[in-house]
């Protein structure tokens, strides 16, 4: 697993450090650093919790998303 943290965006809140059950991240100099990327199982909790959207995972399996409403997405596309 390749995890990248945008150092400029990271606010050093440490939420990803607290939330990750596999202790993938550590705070170093007030920036989150993925110190154990091989322990990542790709749950993406850190993505959901990161207030700065500073994280990027590469080589991840994206789970199926049945809950996305196609009609709502179509409407959003029209607006955007």
């Amino acid at each position: 697993m390749d995890i990248r943290v945008d150092k400029d965006a990271c606010v050093g809140c440490g939420l990803c450090v607290k939330d990750c059950p596999m202790h993938v991240y550590e705070l170093q100099n007030k920036v989150s650093v993925p110190v154990r990327p091989n322990n990542c199982m790709g749950c993406l909790s850190c993505h959901e919790i990161c207030p700065a959207q500073a994280l990027e995972h590469r080589g991840i399996y994206p789970a199926r998303r049945h809950y996305i409403d196609i009609k709502v997405c179509e409407m959003l596309r029209k607006v955007i």
Binding site: P21, M22, M41, G42, C43, L44, S45, H47, E48, I60, Y61, P62, A63
Partner: peptide
């Protein structure tokens, strides 16, 4: 652990 993309 539960997450949006996977659960352990």
């Amino acid at each position: 652990h539960t997450g949006p993309n996977a659960c352990l």
